[in-house]
Design a protein around this nucleic acid. Structure first.
Lengths: 337, 337
DNA sequence: TTTTGTCTTTGTATCGATCTAAAATTCCGG
DNA sequence: CCGGAATTTTAGATCGATACAAAGACAAAA
């Protein structure tokens, strides 16, 4: 295994100089730099980050902790994060907690032991702020993304859920729908609460009774969305529009409609939430609220980068607004009420 | 920041003893171990992995490099890998190359610099075996998964693609289908080649003409699958069954059928490949070939673990057989030919 | 009591890069 | 060609855990 010393010997300079070249410091003269780089190539030198990290306590590494890697919004989020951090020479690792508190604390400990430079976390429901105390003690910046931790004092990047569903619901109301169902989440109670509130706001602002609007909770799968939809449409008075908690549920809803011989966007309108990539590739293309996950990722990364530069900044939130993507699953209701 | 020395002082033992406790060595007496653990808790000690890694050149870390994190088969793969490696005290990191050779080499370099203990890689198309030479030089074990690298001498875990599509096609043939289309991949030429071969084999073994079977290539999106399907069904002689390259394309195919007013599994049969979680949650549940990605993940991890113990083992492959998951999108053709 | 052997514990050198402060070199105007 | 400033380079200590060999503790056997 070759080290700085080997390179130094071949290049005929000191260890310290080679180290400076590694970190491309402006201190070294161009001639020397070239000589060193040639020597590095010659001996096949590979930088040892553990050693560097031990001495400098800078890992140039940030971890993105997400609850469910299979959910495509997190890959959008990741690409936003990388867009900001990669040019800064920071590597981004991903860790998947699979919605398990135990796994999450394992991962948190591991990252602490690795002395990562920062954390972007979409915490599992029920996470205690105490589980991040060690990070505060060690001065490692933490940014919350998408999901906040109750009672935690960290920067946050996310979307305005309440406003988002309000806009979605207003869209259907303005198309003339009078009976709109809310297909909520049985998985993320806190976010669901916010999104349901927005739904209620829109309905009330339109002078309709919230009680008249059916509500059902669903898991985040196609099948669950389809079942929920079939249940809703089996009721005596059918809704003409569906506001879904997220896109996968909305996809399930359209599948459920097809099974009932109904055409989404013609017989019943369906609106999703998130705007994952599949939404624009759906048939028919799904009307949904875009949270612009990639932008949220950029926000989170920017907050983290700022705080890495200066830990005394006041805590801040970057809450973006979801925008309506009107596609083909929403239209005026067939029969005006 | 507290170190081994701080703990040692509080516990009244030497630094070396504390180090042994960290690695829960059986050498320390139970009484001492307890004393040390109490001291650790008291001073809030956090293990420093960079220091440990520098000295022992053991990172207890393995990286899984995948080309597309949004593809759900990789999350199954990951869970299989973790099932094997986590109990061994090895942390698994995920890195996403987003099908970019440049990003892949960045990541490979980074991992080398971190002196990870092993690599499981599903390489980007066009990867040169040379890009892994440094790993051979440094004696870091590498296992290929799902996709092989042309000309590389590493262990491999994956599925038998040819046999898989052969079985899928035989399933439709045995149901009585005479005209079956192959909806291939425009993205992964090498895997597509293998899968198409299996399709041809089945057709020929059944005494039918391969030339009579329509073939079309598709990207891996719902939309592309739907379009391909509509193109196929616009032909004068319609296929009664579709063998799709993977599940997302098959999903697209069912959506395309719905748009044409046809019912998947009744009017036209659709068979997918991979058996991602969404397949059993699809409406109707999708008939598909399960590659058991989780099992493949376990295989890859086992191969890696073996090689970490002994680098002189002969190179080996673990190729598993895909199994048919007969669900509701396949049935005998409507009109017998 | 001494010897032997098993269990535990420890002192010290070491891993490879970085920090610091100081030394060496170069540059330039006078 | 010199002095002083600016630019480069360097020696040596250091980060925190681990390897190794050797020492200490203790019980049982002689």
């Amino acid at each position: 295994m070759t080290t700085l010393l080997d390179v130094a010997r071949v290049a005929g300079v000191s260890r310290a100089t080679v180290s400076l070249v590694c970190r491309n410091s402006p201190l070294v003269a161009d001639k020397t730099r070239l000589k060193v780089q040639r020597a590095m190539a010659e001996v096949g030198y590979v930088y040892n980050r553990s050693a560097a990290n031990l001495r400098s306590s800078l890992a140039n590494t940030v971890v993105l902790i997400i609850p469910e890697i299979a959910n495509p919004i997190y890959s959008d989020l990741l690409s936003g994060v990388e867009e900001i951090l990669t040019p800064l020479g920071i590597a981004v690792f991903i860790a998947d907690t699979i919605e398990s508190l135990e796994r999450q604390s394992q991962i948190l400990l591991r990252m602490l032991e690795m002395r990562v430079d920062g954390l972007i976390i979409s915490a599992v429901a029920g996470t205690s702020p105490k589980s991040l105390d060690a990070y505060i003690r060690m001065g490692i910046p933490v940014v919350q993304v998408m999901r906040g931790i109750e009672g935690a004092q960290f920067d946050f990047a996310g979307t305005n859920n309440r406003l988002g569903t309000r806009k979605a619901t207003e869209h259907l109301l303005s198309l003339g729908h009078q009976r709109i169902a809310f297909v909520g989440s049985a998985i993320s109670p806190s976010v669901n609460q916010q999104r349901y509130l927005g739904f209620c706001e829109a309905v009330e602002m339109h002078g309709l009774a919230v009680d008249a609007m059916p509500v059902i909770l669903s898991r985040h799968s196609f099948n669950a969305g389809a079942l929920a939809t079939k249940t809703l449409l089996a009721q005596p008075v059918r809704p003409t529009g569906l506001i879904c908690f997220n896109d996968p549920i909305a996809f399930g809803a359209t599948l459920g409609l097809y099974e009932l011989g109904l055409v989404p966007g013609k017989d019943v309108s369906v609106v999703g939430f998130d705007d994952i990539e599949a939404a624009r590739n759906w048939r028919p293309p799904l009307t949904t609220m875009s949270i612009e996950a990639q932008l949220i990722g950029k926000h989170a990364a920017m907050l983290l980068a700022e705080r890495m530069k200066n830990r005394d900044l006041p805590i801040s939130s970057l809450v973006s607004e979801a925008v309506l993507k009107k596609r083909e699953t929403s239209a005026p209701p067939r029969i005006r009420a």
